[in-house]
Design a protein around this nucleic acid. Structure first.
Lengths: 344, 344
DNA sequence: ATGAAAGCGCTAACAC
DNA sequence: GTGTTAGCGCTTTCAT
């Protein structure tokens, strides 16, 4: 392993070192290492041999500068602890693995300022494309993205005007449809528990769609409460207790995500409530976690994996010289999963 | 927003554009944009103004090539869906946010081949340091890392020889201590449920430490089962049912992680078992999720956040010209959290 | 306080 | 099939 000559490798290896070690021009070495152009099998072997024994790792910085091409795709998401985003990433990776593109992840913590900073940093590496969560961005962020002149895919949400392309679901519609389902099932005294939403636009849109649809049936949310931070499962449990103590005759609780919904479900089971008779419950996302719960929580799948795949597909297609998709907005349709906590 | 002159911005903006727009030399523009050297307030303003109205984003590729410096830290982890790693990332970010360093995340899916590929890709960007999970790597990976001549921090595990620096806990010891605790509590018929471990070395080491310590007390694992893939919570539930049907007189189950432990706990509660009397349970990791469960699962905190912070600290320190830490191995001590599922 | 020249390590474009 | 030349967009260094 590694050559055993006097080793003082202070200076990182360059193409030139491989060139000298193999007695082949830098250019040809470069060609071999990138599988470009025709190189005789003999030369090829010599070069690979030399590169391997030296332990040469190409310098992509120089390569990118020279070729004006960078095989990175910037992926900017609000959070990694949300479960939802890792799944989107999985979808993205799934597609990019088939190409020579590589995702680079940046996290904003739902802060527009951080988003701006992260985008600036990422764009300064001149990626081949950007996948960014949400349609809401600061003016500066929009300007940067527009000016970058690369494919930009805004994901997760389709309620708004995309900068370039959007791939996601309509959260307003998701909220609306869940409300309709709940009403159709005969529930009338409906509570809502969710995250504080000033910056979680998708949760806000679901809530808006939800209340809107209730209103159409002449129903108002009977009680509601918002939290931030902490263990979502625990919050779900505690908030459910609180809201039911305050408004004991609620017959349904809609949660802004599955995690707090699961907490609420566990609480209700402990209390021995008849579910979905005495009280119905529903969350949002369709996380895998729910499979292990004693009862299946009603939810709506957010198509996370699909969104990731489609978004990556748009970038990969465009990077390969393809055109933008016919439509600037790709709206997927979330499936309602009634589980066991919603009367039917 | 953006200048309203005839816009054909095909070509990305360069320093030169800012230079021309502001009537200041490229060099001075560069100084302003990086806050280096003395620039008169007047010039400074002119430059910033020009850069802003043009929407200039510096080209880090060119900058990095010229300065031979890259403010990226490669972070290579096995998975994002494991909860554990996002938390490590949080710790890393926490520290790096105080510096000008930026983490770049790569995911290996527990595959040595993928790890090799990811490392290769990342090293080719010449990062300022590498944080990589685990001490087990392919020969090629080790060679690359050694040759890179940058700080390398292997995290999560301290049972082995680090390439450069290791920050983590001893999983062997964690397994051992849990076994001792279980025995001290009087349990004797002990089962184990976990992931298939050929590639999850830390889970394997915990298991080894565990069986070793049991052996010292003349006890053998009474039954065991391994899974891969699927919803961990669900697997925990199903495997617990299976193992208890097969070996009904188990009085303790040790799970290789909290998620399947939680599934098992939910199952046992449903069955109405007396916990921790009839049967005790314990997991590993100390994930926040457990806070929301009806009973607190016994577990051992893996110090994820701390590990991230310390690892990032080592890189940041070294990048700032500091020395390597006194010791090449920084071993943290996991706390046993007895919860409600372990007799005391 | 500002500018001019050289060059980082690679690849595009063109010879041969 | 292989080599030569120029230059990517910055920063370093040195001059003024």
């Amino acid at each position: 392993m590694v050559s055993d000559r006097a080793n003082t490798p202070k200076r990182p290896l360059t193409l030139r070192d491989v060139s000298e070690a193999s007695g082949v021009s830098e250019m040809t070495v470069s060609r071999v290492l990138r599988n470009r152009g025709d190189v005789s099998a003999r030369t090829r072997e010599k070069v690979l041999q030399a590169a391997r024994t030296l332990g040469y790792v190409p310098n992509k910085i120089a390569g990118a500068l020279a070729s004006q091409r960078v095989n990175l795709v910037a992926v900017v998401i609000p959070s990694l602890s949300n479960m939802v985003f890792p799944e989107v990433l999985t979808g993205i990776t799934h597609v990019l693995d088939e190409t020579d593109l590589q995702p680079v992840v940046g996290v904003t913590n739902y802060s527009p300022e951080r988003e701006e900073k992260v985008l600036y940093e990422m764009l300064s590496w001149r990626p081949s494309g950007v996948i960014v969560a949400g349609l809401e961005h600061s003016d500066a962020s929009r300007t940067m993205l527009q000016a970058a002149d690369i494919p930009i895919v805004e994901i997760m949400d389709t309620d708004g005007e995309p900068i370039d392309t959007a791939v996601g679901i309509s959260h307003r519609r998701a909220g609306r449809e869940m409300a309709q389902e709940i009403i159709a099932a005969g529930y009338r005294k409906i509570g809502f528990l969710g995250t504080k939403m000033p910056l979680d636009h998708r949760a806000r849109k679901r809530f808006e769609g939800f209340t809107e649809a209730l209103a159409k049936s002449g129903i108002e949310v009977a009680d509601q409460e918002f939290y931030s931070g902490g263990s979502a499962l625990l919050k779900g449990r505690e908030m459910t207790r609180a809201i039911l103590e305050r408004t004991p005759d609620l017959d349904f609780i809609y949660y802004s995500n599955d995690m707090i919904g699961a907490g609420g479900l566990l609480y209700c089971l402990e209390q021995g409530f008849d579910i979905p008779g005495r009280i119905g419950l529903a969350g949002f996302n369709g996380v895998e976690l729910l499979d292990g719960l004693p009862l299946g929580l009603a939810t709506m799948d957010a198509c996370r994996f699909d969104i990731g795949q489609k978004a990556a597909g748009v970038i990969a297609g465009r990077a390969a010289g393809g055109q933008a998709p016919e439509s600037r907005v790709v709206e997927l349709t979330p499936r309602l999963e009634p589980g066991d906590t919603l009367r039917r």
